[in-house]
Simulated assay, not measured.
Amino acid sequence: MVEVLVVGAGPVGTLLAAELVRRGVDVRLLERRARPGGGTRAIGVHAPVLAALEESGATERLLDAARRVPRGEARAGSRILGIVRFDHLSARFPFVATLPQAETEAVLGGLAPAPERGADVTVIRPRPTGVDVTIARPGRADEELRAPLVVLAGGWSARHLAFRADRIPTTTYRDRYLMSDVPVGDGADADIAVVNLAPSGVLESFPLPGSMRRMVAWDAAAVQAEDSASARVQRLKAALRARGEASVADAVVTATAFGVRRVCAPRLRHGRLLVIGDAAHEVSPIGGQGMNLGLLDAVGLAPLLTRWVHERAAPEEGLAAWERRRVRSAVRAGRLAAVNTVLGRPRGAAADLARRTFVRGMLAPPLGRGFAWAYAMGLDAGP
């Protein structure tokens, strides 16, 4: 009999399923997507996550596929404003490991049960003795079942299954960004993350395996209902050229556009239903901590659910402490992402000078080490 039903087979749901199976729990993993997702999404795995996954063997597998980024630089054009030294931190893994999210999913999927794809969960209703779930599949009658425990890890698009929209504080920012993964070769900056604070808006550049870089540029265009793929490519090329990256601009062939928002559910548990990852807390991708928050949610929850299953009683104190830690961590990550978002906006001459002065002071000793710690998820309260 299935002991825990996990909804969502992205990195967070897959990791939770893997951790539960490793502990002897019978898991059923459902996924709405018919095939693993691709595209340009989360890429960075931070030191606390790498440390938390080491026991399971996932860390070694991730690092085999990843690029290690030991430092980042804040720049204004060709001038360096400050350096974030991850390699100077007292951490088991003093770097950020970067790899496409699809590869992260594949690595974690090798440790988890195979997901049931094409299974769209449309209703979740917690009951005193279980959770009622409705599953829709193309060309088949809906499946109705009651699971002892359910974890919703289906990302932001599944949030409505657990929360009413008017019950969760949400901040939607006016900022929009363009993004592409571009082949650039291996130059002097091959292992350096770069944040260029240009007057026309931020340009972020992150190393990826295979001599690729993730380019993210602030987008001056307003949201358009019919924003074509070619228009996005041309805007990104123009943004890169304006910021001195003409050779990179020539290599851009695709681009996606996205907006940012901050969501943080005050509660992650409703009886036998638990919510983790972006379904519970969504932070701006500028800063790259969203996926890591969810992975740490899963690492901390797995042993508690295992106790619940094996002892047939909820570990109430442990669950309450876990929930407090994870909500606190999401709030902190959201605030840090909000600072990053504001810093990356276009500025006039006077405001741009003030920004550069602020960033220089922020990243200079002794404050610089503290900011490196914060950007490496040192503010996280733990799984």
Score class of each variant (00 low, 15 high):
211 S>I: 00
233 V>L: 07
84 V>M: 05
60 E>K: 06
120 D>C: 12
114 A>M: 13
240 L>E: 08
344 G>E: 04
54 E>C: 01
26 D>Q: 07
140 R>V: 01
43 I>G: 09
220 A>Y: 08
165 A>I: 13
172 T>P: 02
130 G>L: 02
245 E>M: 06
112 A>Q: 04
311 E>R: 10
269 R>T: 08
197 L>A: 04
31 E>V: 05
380 D>R: 08
216 V>L: 15
264 C>D: 06
45 V>I: 14
37 G>Y: 10
89 L>R: 07
144 E>C: 06
15 L>V: 09
58 A>H: 11
92 R>C: 09
357 T>Y: 00
295 L>A: 06
39 G>C: 12
123 V>Y: 10
68 R>C: 11
103 E>Y: 08
65 A>K: 14
176 R>L: 03
28 R>A: 12
224 Q>F: 02
44 G>L: 07
378 G>L: 06
363 L>G: 01
189 D>T: 11
332 R>T: 04
221 A>H: 14
7 V>E: 04
252 V>R: 01
253 V>W: 09
369 R>T: 01
352 D>G: 02
212 M>A: 02
18 A>K: 09
262 R>K: 14
276 I>Q: 04
346 P>I: 00
203 L>A: 10
308 W>M: 03
270 H>S: 14
282 E>D: 10
352 D>L: 04
97 A>V: 11
237 K>A: 04
159 R>M: 15
78 S>R: 15
256 T>M: 02
306 T>W: 05
256 T>I: 12
56 S>K: 00
295 L>M: 09
383 P>F: 14
169 P>V: 11
307 R>G: 04
214 R>V: 09
354 A>R: 04
320 A>K: 13
71 R>Y: 09
72 G>E: 04
209 P>C: 08
32 R>L: 14
276 I>W: 02
65 A>G: 00
148 P>F: 15
133 V>G: 13
341 T>C: 13
9 A>C: 05
148 P>Q: 12
294 G>V: 02
105 E>C: 09
31 E>A: 08
341 T>G: 12
383 P>H: 15
324 R>F: 01
293 L>D: 02
141 A>D: 13
373 W>N: 03
305 L>P: 10
276 I>N: 08
109 G>M: 05
67 R>T: 13
321 A>R: 15
191 D>R: 14
64 D>Y: 08
62 L>N: 13
161 L>R: 12
354 A>Q: 01
155 G>N: 13
19 E>W: 03
89 L>D: 09
281 H>L: 02
247 S>K: 11
327 V>F: 11
78 S>M: 12
47 A>E: 11
50 L>S: 06
94 P>D: 04
29 L>G: 07
246 A>K: 06
252 V>D: 04
70 P>K: 04
52 A>L: 06
270 H>W: 06
58 A>T: 11
78 S>D: 15
260 V>Y: 13
231 A>H: 05
212 M>H: 10
329 S>K: 12
228 S>A: 07
195 V>D: 10
103 E>V: 10
103 E>T: 13
226 E>T: 03
172 T>Y: 15
40 T>S: 14
195 V>L: 05
211 S>Y: 05
350 A>P: 00
366 P>G: 05
63 L>E: 02
